[in-house]
Simulated scan of single mutants.
Amino acid sequence: MKFQSRLRFPAACGLFALALAASVGGFADDARATEHQTFVIGTGNVAGVYYPAAGAICQAMNGVREAGDPTCAVVPGESSKANLAALRAEGTDFAIVQSDWQFWAQQGAEFFADPTPFTSLRSVMALHAEPLVIAVRRGGGIGALADLKGKRVSVGAPASASRGMMEVLMGALGWSMSDFGEVKEFAAPQQAAALCNSDIDAAVYAVGSPSATLAALTTRCEVSFLPLAGPEVDQLLAENKFYRTAAIPAGVYAGIDAAVPTFGVGATLVTRANMSETVVAALVTAVLENFEAFRALHPALTWLETDQMMRGGLSAPLHPAAARVFTEREGS
């Protein structure tokens, strides 16, 4: 595999969709293609972010492939848990998974069908952040985390990502649910109406940007996002390596004119230790050498930075080929 030429991406989203469809279609014609013909990235729902993000990776890879080189293909998936199971069973070659699920798979956990540590799991790169967002009504007297005490707060639905991160944050602060005046467990779709109608004072989300959910909320009523930073958050990050620093970007949502610091999980690309070093190196190289064009392929990738890609929320060791490419790039 040479992969020497630089890729020129089409700017139009329509062309991206066609390229992705062609990639997936090619795999569908030979569902058991060998590693040397097609390698497969397991993703998420086609309407979500993981599927098109993987499509951007495949477009970077396929755009510089030469005759005889393997083709990158994307398949939809149900969840990070399912993607990790498929990767472990060698049903896929790569997978996009949330960073906390990557951590638990590597460590081993009883909620997996195989609860033993996935010792051959390897990180390839970190992608976009999926941070905790705490929204409050503007003018409601809440400007910092400490102001939430005694207020009516929707902490997210049980077992949701937002609820999990909120509980971790509360633990770091030494808080319990009793510190709030009233606790609601609304799912994300219910929270906008409750917050804008003054039925609650704060709502918790876990979502990357740009988010249609946050866009709808900020156009429905005037809200602010609380900054989540400080010594307690720093300690939380040190104790939970699957979390990463993040920011809600400025100018994306109505009334949010400055970036807001926060933290959260992130999307990560993973593989197995036995994955071809040539393929892994070519994939990472294709993305990095065409980085600006890669980021332009999906809005969720807009704020991705190369230094975060080799560190952001990764708990499984970097695949040696990925580590080598990142190290060479840092030294260049």
Results as ranks from 00 to 15, higher is better:
residue 142 I to E: 02
residue 263 F to W: 06
residue 199 D to T: 13
residue 35 E to W: 10
residue 73 A to Q: 03
residue 237 L to C: 09
residue 141 G to P: 02
residue 167 E to M: 14
residue 136 V to A: 06
residue 300 A to K: 12
residue 95 A to D: 08
residue 65 R to Q: 07
residue 291 F to A: 10
residue 57 I to E: 00
residue 140 G to P: 05
residue 92 T to A: 09
residue 176 S to H: 08
residue 25 G to C: 13
residue 88 R to Q: 12
residue 166 M to V: 04
residue 99 S to W: 01
residue 297 L to N: 04
residue 258 A to P: 02
residue 255 G to L: 03
residue 118 F to A: 10
residue 310 M to L: 13
residue 193 A to G: 01
residue 73 A to D: 03
residue 228 L to P: 04
residue 317 P to F: 05
residue 162 S to Q: 15
residue 294 F to H: 03
residue 256 I to L: 08
residue 202 A to I: 05
residue 16 F to H: 14
residue 321 A to F: 02
residue 237 L to S: 05
residue 225 F to G: 00
residue 89 A to D: 10
residue 279 V to G: 03
residue 73 A to R: 00
residue 35 E to M: 14
residue 88 R to K: 14
residue 216 A to I: 01
residue 224 S to I: 02
residue 84 L to T: 01
residue 288 L to S: 11
residue 248 I to R: 00
residue 20 L to M: 15
residue 69 D to Y: 07
residue 305 E to G: 12
residue 61 M to F: 10
residue 130 E to F: 01
residue 55 G to V: 00
residue 226 L to Q: 05
residue 211 S to R: 01
residue 180 F to M: 04
residue 59 Q to W: 01
residue 185 E to I: 05
residue 182 E to F: 11
residue 49 V to Q: 03
residue 135 A to R: 01
residue 13 C to Y: 13
residue 104 W to Q: 07
residue 141 G to R: 07
residue 192 A to L: 05
residue 26 G to Q: 12
residue 135 A to Y: 00
residue 124 V to K: 08
residue 128 H to L: 05
residue 58 C to T: 00
residue 215 A to Y: 00
residue 125 M to Y: 07
residue 332 S to N: 14
residue 278 T to G: 15
residue 226 L to N: 11
residue 172 A to V: 09
residue 271 T to Q: 10
residue 206 A to R: 03
residue 284 V to W: 08
residue 215 A to S: 11
residue 294 F to Y: 06
residue 263 F to C: 12
residue 256 I to T: 06
residue 261 P to L: 04
residue 73 A to E: 01
residue 8 R to I: 12
residue 160 S to R: 08
residue 274 N to C: 09
residue 285 T to R: 05
residue 220 R to K: 12
residue 186 F to V: 03
residue 283 L to D: 00
residue 100 D to R: 08
residue 267 A to N: 03
residue 98 Q to N: 11
residue 294 F to C: 05
residue 40 V to P: 05
residue 289 E to N: 15
residue 118 F to M: 13
residue 194 A to Q: 07
residue 307 D to R: 13
residue 18 L to S: 15
residue 250 A to M: 06
residue 47 A to C: 10
residue 102 Q to E: 14
residue 238 A to Q: 13
residue 272 R to F: 03
residue 11 A to S: 15
residue 94 F to A: 04
residue 29 D to R: 15
residue 183 V to E: 10
residue 74 V to I: 09
residue 76 P to I: 02
residue 55 G to N: 00
residue 121 L to C: 12
residue 312 G to E: 02
residue 265 V to N: 10
residue 187 A to T: 14
residue 314 L to T: 04
residue 182 E to M: 11
residue 50 Y to T: 00
residue 29 D to H: 14
residue 224 S to D: 15
residue 32 R to M: 14
residue 43 T to K: 03
residue 323 A to K: 11
residue 254 A to W: 01
residue 247 A to I: 02
residue 150 G to Y: 05
residue 33 A to L: 04
residue 10 P to Q: 12
residue 208 G to A: 08
residue 146 A to C: 03
residue 100 D to H: 13
residue 216 A to T: 09
residue 299 P to N: 15
residue 85 A to L: 07
residue 87 L to Q: 09
residue 299 P to I: 13
residue 212 A to N: 11
residue 36 H to R: 14
residue 232 E to T: 15
residue 275 M to K: 07
